[in-house]
Design a protein around this nucleic acid. Structure first.
Ligand SMILES: [Mn+2]
Ligand SMILES: [Mn+2]
Ligand SMILES: [Zn+2]
Ligand SMILES: [Zn+2]
Lengths: 160, 160
DNA sequence: TTGACTAATGCACTTCCATTGCATTCGTTT
DNA sequence: AAACGAATGCAATGGAAGTGCATTAGTCAA
């Protein structure tokens, strides 16, 4: 453990963090997903895990005092490719990312839950309990994936 | 009629067209939608009307020998604001536009049809016959609009 | 018919974000 | 300790949205 922990604490400092972070669980999880648990990846993962709503790359960037957008870009891309996060296109123009649920298999398209985008606060949330209903498409077409975004007012903004 | 027709033929030439276009119907339609039927608008409308699938702004731009992207941008925006076209976000990153159906009232969200995006040819089509089914959302949320895009293979690409 | 007024256009420019190339650094393995 | 591949940081490119402003076109009312 020390073999891993010590250098990371060093790195965390380099990224502007001076707190100690217990990351053994995250390390293990990343490793189980074939993602090498580097310092930045652990931080990004932790950030995603703490959030209730999806975030953009710029959003992630701003959460760190010191960060390189490219690294974050590739970090999120790696996460996506390895099924740790899924990308959400909520119509706001820039993609957002959210952690996949335990057991979610977005990559093989069987966790088709709704996404809700709030027109007021611009937050986008995964409605993981709400699955996409059966959709009929014309003869000759082959469906491989479905993206359903509901726009409106989220529960926090819908209070008059 | 001539009062309108003659200057337009002149403009069409300026835009790289040397054909005569019967545009009285388009003129009338644009006027009925409170959109002043200028030369460029007529051309863009005609282009949209001819297409079976949605197109991007860049796509439109490339269809004209001589064109200004800003004008096209504002043309499409005007069309959208006046309910002539609707914007489709198919997940490809750039928005696409398609003519609204006769009687479609996208602006007040009661023509919620599916959109199909082909992963192979990247074409996006309106499935106007296929309406979005009833969607349940959590208590406290207020739905105002729904975007449903099915990705897969279109009928042209789904031939083995 | 003309002149005045408003709308539309074209051009230049800015901003935002995705994406890539490459040199450097890191982490692991031998 | 050396070596190798992976990850990172930096610089640069490219695509597209959006804005400001001067010019031009179209409308309308004398
Ligand atoms: Mn989700
Ligand atoms: Mn449509
Ligand atoms: Zn909200
Ligand atoms: Zn296709």
């Amino acid at each position: 453990m020390f073999k891993l922990l010590l250098p990371y604490l060093c790195f965390l400092h380099a990224y502007g963090f001076n707190c100690y972070v217990l990351m053994n669980d995250i390390e293990k999880f990343l490793t189980s997903k074939k993602v090498r648990p580097t310092a930045m990846r652990i931080l990004v993962f932790r950030l995603l895990a703490q959030r209730q709503t999806a975030i953009t790359l710029t959003n992630i960037e701003n959460r760190f005092e010191k960060s390189d957008r490219t690294t974050l870009y590739r970090t999120v891309k790696t996460f996506e490719e390895n099924g740790l996060v899924h990308r959400i296109n909520d119509g706001s123009g820039v993609p957002k990312y959210a952690l996949c649920e335990e057991g979610c298999e977005c990559d093989i398209h069987n966790d088709l839950h709704l996404h809700f985008h709030c027109n007021r606060c611009d937050e986008t949330s995964c409605l993981t309990e709400h699955k996409i209903p059966q959709i009929n498409i014309p003869k000759g077409y082959l469906a491989e994936d479905i993206n359903l975004v509901v726009n409106g007012l989220c529960d926090r903004c819908n209070v008059d």
